[in-house]
Design a protein around this nucleic acid. Structure first.
Length: 897
RNA sequence: GGGCGACUAGCUCAGUUGGCUAGAGCAUCGGCCUUACAAGCCGAGGGUCAAAGGUUCGAGCCCUUUGUCGCCCACCA
């Protein structure tokens, strides 16, 4: 048989297995109506950059569920793809062009688009290659891109239908504008940050009926003095005592030299500032609403470049916002309108993409009416037709629905889906058309102008679960795999993406986009910071793969999977754990492989599930328990626990106990016993490989192949295509409890070896005193003690030893074990210390028992079986301590004597 | 300001419907190159379950209040 190295070459194996998978198209899914459908769409990575740990987190869990369902006999598909990521990509490419000495502003729309396409396709390839390298079992033949032909058609179709339904409209509204990106944004695209700024108190003098400016005036407080140039009113609360007797209805706006009304509105807080608020409808969302309520004019004084414009006084025109602010404050001071300045912490709104401060301003944009659409999604989630995990996220979702505003869907970019609305140059007729119209539908004029704005990236993303399956056409895929089974997504894009998919799917398919939505947190560094290039805590996954291997990184990420928690912290040390696990798996399998000989190469190892050897039965029973627990955890989307459960079974029960215990049988002359031991090991190993293959597909696939080769089995199928584990064996509770007793005894014997410096190779003879049925358990599984502690039971007692000469006593839960010593190595003081400590431990437990049992209420109200258990425990502890005390007095006698 | 979540060993986290002396991994300390694995094995130490109160025979778990941290939302300029 071939030599198998201790440490495997992960890069080599990854490449080799990856190639095999790709060649044989194993990830490709065909519709199989005899099976239940299972479908996932990938959250499409942005073509802006390359994959990062967040993507790995996202996709590792998807791959696990896909592989799990595939093995469980579902017709499972995973649709991969990428997102054009409008603003991000355009920004990145622009920066890139600047670096190359090209000014993107000088390029034509077409030329810029070509540059972006080139960049995007390049990154799309990189991402695809990375996803493949990670072993994700996506159906690459169904790969999609949000700007590909089919998806573009879907976008146009969706737009036109919404437009024709009157849900999309164009309007001049106040929008969040980023002057650096040069486009409007939706509410969800913004971030809010705490900002230490100043609060300026400015006096607006009163104006009487005859338009005379008075000496006194109303003092307003503002964080943005420059916007006063666009003020159209001052608002006060009608309930405010301070202004109840106010006789003036107008005031003078300094610097702008206008007279503006004083209005009354309940929105003004009574306990903030002076109780008077300046109203700037053109540059503040609240003020915009107030302006609408009171029919106030809108005066825009800031343009899209963030510069002051007319009708502001000439002096300020052309200044940028911060400069204007300084000049205006100076002028206010000079003209004695500035009352005071306070330090103030407020929230500042920034562009999520470029972190520039957002300027609310009036602009013509396209909007989607969201209220009714969102309401339908709300009812669907309320009716639990879509399950959201964790449950607490439902509240966030409902909050989003309840506070929904119309969605600004137009972006002033070139990269994206150009809005399919055409204006007749002759009669100004607006037409939304899926295909470019040849003539005006009203007047027949042939000169038409398409909108230059593109749609918000999330508009196409919102269609993703069904557009990728062929919508707007009626396809068999849509029929079979839609709605998708589960969507796995980061919690951070719940509002951007998940909610909008619900809205769009319900509108266009009359169906939910996914049955279950699973949200997870983010990966952070060991200090809990977000991973970012600027912080320098960002690990390039490629470097991690090179150092630790894909499987190790996947194992680490999955074991930390932050479901139902905040975020998870991962440090470099954690990857070592992942790698250690993979290596352990490799070596345990290597051990089995090297033990397979001609007479143990049996094809039908399945039948060795029914070996009647006790330890074989035990490991099979533990395997069964592991599979059940593992599957239950997965079913509950508690994926890290599923993985931890499996790892614990593998490392503990299988490696540390089972393999160690069967070693002598592998050299046994009894061929049947040898075969049984090995085949049980192979059988359990294969099931372990199957379970691990959900998470660490490469090493498991490779080991599966090695096992098959070594056993001369030609299954010609991949591990990922095998069936999931059947757990049809009896539970074997007796053996499990007997093993538990023996394992505890082994640990105690080992501890005594440490304590008294007895080498492992020194064979130990043990006397055991315990209850009769326990004694049997020790006797029947004595080989456990033999093989893992090099100890042998030479005596079974029905009562504790009276004298300790030549023995080390071990207190068991019920009874005692005694290690027989050779003369001269008894350390009485050590033993005495040990016994004293044990007595103290027991006393502690006894105290609890006594307290509980002396409580009359407890005896009356607690369930009988629990009371009985405590009584039993108390009895054992008392007996145990009585014996221990007698030993102590013997010891003391010996010491004194 | 509102909502949600977290707080358990030095660190990262488990802990099902309340019921054995509260667990795991890492880290620490100690012992082993024992024939799969030193990227390993064996063993030990380490916790007033954030605080206080309440319900209960019994609370890490349920209720109330407080504190700290995190996230989301928000029209106090």
């Amino acid at each position: 048989m071939q030599e198998i190295p201790i440490h495997f070459n992960h890069e080599e194996i990854e490449a080799q297995i990856s190639e095999q998978w790709e060649k044989s198209r194993v990830f490709h899914a065909e519709i199989d109506k005899n099976k239940q459908p299972f479908s996932i769409v990938i959250p499409p990575p942005n073509v802006t950059g390359t994959l990062h740990l967040g993507h790995i987190l996202d996709n590792v869990i998807q791959d696990a569920y896909l592989r799990w369902h595939r093995m469980r006999g579902f017709s499972a598909v995973w649709i991969p793809g990428t997102d054009h990521a409008g603003i991000s990509t355009q920004n990145v490419v622009k920066k890139f062009l600047y670096k190359q000495g090209i000014n993107p502003e000088t390029l034509s729309r077409e030329a810029l688009l070509n540059k972006i396409w080139e960049f995007a396709l390049n990154h799309k390839n990189i991402i695809t290659t990375q996803l493949k390298k990670l072993g994700f079992s996506c159906d690459w033949e169904r790969e999609r891109f949000t700007l590909d032909e089919g998806l573009s058609l879907a976008v146009r179709t969706a737009f036109v239908r919404l437009f024709n339904k009157g849900l999309i409209y164009k309007g001049s509204r106040i929008v969040s504008w980023c002057s650096r990106c040069g486009t409007a944004f939706a509410d969800e695209d913004l971030i809010h940050e705490k900002n230490s700024g100043l609060l300026w108190y400015i006096k607006y003098p009163f104006v009487d009926e005859q338009e005379n400016i008075q000496d006194d005036g109303v003092v307003i407080a503002t964080t943005r003095p420059e916007t006063m140039l666009g003020d159209v009113a001052v608002a006060i609360n009608p309930e405010d005592e301070r202004y109840k007797t106010l006789k003036y209805t107008k005031c003078f706006l300094p610097l702008a030299n206008r007279v503006i009304p004083i209005i009354k509105d309940n929105f003004v807080a009574l306990d903030f500032g002076t109780g008077a608020v300046k109203i700037t409808p053109a540059h503040d969302f609240t003020d915009y609403e107030v302006g609408k309520r009171h029919n106030l004019p809108i005066i825009s004084i800031i343009n899209k470049d963030g510069k002051i414009i007319e009708p502001a006084p000439a002096k300020y025109i052309g200044l940028d916002i911060m400069t204007a602010r300084n000049v205006i404050v100076d002028d206010l001071v000079q003209q004695k309108f500035l009352v005071k300045i306070e330090n103030y912490v407020n929230n500042i709104t920034k562009c999520e993409r470029c972190h520039n401060v957002i300027e609310p301003l009036i602009s013509e944009q396209w909007f989607l009416k969201m209220r009714d659409l969102a309401l339908r999604a709300k009812l669907t989630v309320e009716a639990k037709k879509i399950k959201i995990i964790p449950d607490s996220e439902r509240n966030d979702f409902f909050h989003w629905v309840d506070n929904i505003r119309d969605w600004c869907i137009s972006r002033q970019l070139v990269w994206g889906h150009q809005i399919p609305v055409y204006t007749c140059e002759k009669c100004d007729n607006l037409m939304a058309e899926i295909d470019t119209p040849q003539a005006c539908s009203k007047c027949g004029h042939t000169k038409l102008r398409q909108e230059t704005d593109v749609l918000d990236t999330w508009f196409s993303s919102a269609l993703w679960p069904f557009s990728t399956l062929g919508w707007s056409k009626k396809t068999p895929e849509l029929d079979f795999w839609f709605p998708t089974t589960t969507l796995f997504s980061g919690r951070d894009i719940l509002f951007f993406w998940c909610t909008r998919m619900m809205v769009m799917a319900l509108e266009f398919t009359d169906n939910i986009p996914f049955k279950t939505l699973v949200l997870h947190g983010l990966i952070r560094d060991e200090q809990g910071r977000k991973l970012s290039k600027s912080l320098g805590n960002y690990q390039d996954p490629l470097i991690l793969f090179k150092e630790f291997g894909v499987d190790a990184v996947r194992a680490t990420v999955i074991s930390k999977y932050p479901l139902g928690r905040q975020d998870c912290k991962i440090s470099n040390n954690d990857y070592k754990e992942g790698r250690a696990l993979v290596t352990k798996l490799w070596n345990s399998c290597r051990f089995i492989l090297t033990n397979l000989t001609a007479e143990t190469k049996l094809v039908d190892f399945d039948k060795f599930k029914s070996s009647d050897n006790a330890i074989d039965k035990w490991i099979i029973a533990k395997l069964k328990q592991c599979v059940i627990n593992h599957d239950n955890y997965l079913q509950a989307y508690n994926i890290s626990q599923a993985f931890v459960e499996l790892s614990a079974f593998f490392r503990g029960d299988f490696c540390d106990w089972f393999i160690e215990i069967i070693k002598p049988r592998l050299h046994s002359k009894n061929l049947v016993d040898k075969q049984q031991a090995l085949m049980t090991a192979v059988y359990v190993m294969v099931q372990i490989l199957k379970m691990f293959s959900l998470y660490i597909p490469y090493v498991t696939e490779k080991l599966w192949q090695l096992l098959q080769q070594t056993m001369d089995v030609k299954h010609e199928q991949f591990l990922l295509n095998t069936n999931w584990i059947e757990v049809d064996v009896p539970s074997a509770n007796d053996i499990c409890s007997a093993m538990l007793l023996n394992m505890n005894l082994v640990t105690k014997v080992r501890e005594m070896r440490h304590l008294f410096g007895i080498e492992y190779k020194t064979k130990l003879n043990i006397s055991i005193y315990s209850a009769r049925d326990n004694l049997k358990k020790y006797q029947e599984l004595e080989f456990v003690l033999n093989n893992t502690a090099n100890a042998f039971i030479t005596e079974s007692l029905t009562s504790p030893k009276k004298q300790l000469a030549g023995y080390i006593p071990i207190a068991l839960d019920v009874g005692f074990a005694y290690i027989k010593l050779d003369e001269g190595i008894v350390d009485i003081i050590e033993i005495s210390k040990m016994l004293t400590k044990k007595i103290a431990d027991n006393e502690k437990a006894l105290l609890t028992c006594n307290k509980t049992l002396s409580n009359e209420n407890y005896l009356q109200k607690a369930p009988a079986n629990i009371v009985q258990e405590v009584k039993e425990k108390q009895k054992n502890l008392l007996a145990n301590n009585a014996t221990l005390r007698s030993y102590i007095s013997i010891m003391e006698g010996n010491i004194i004597g």
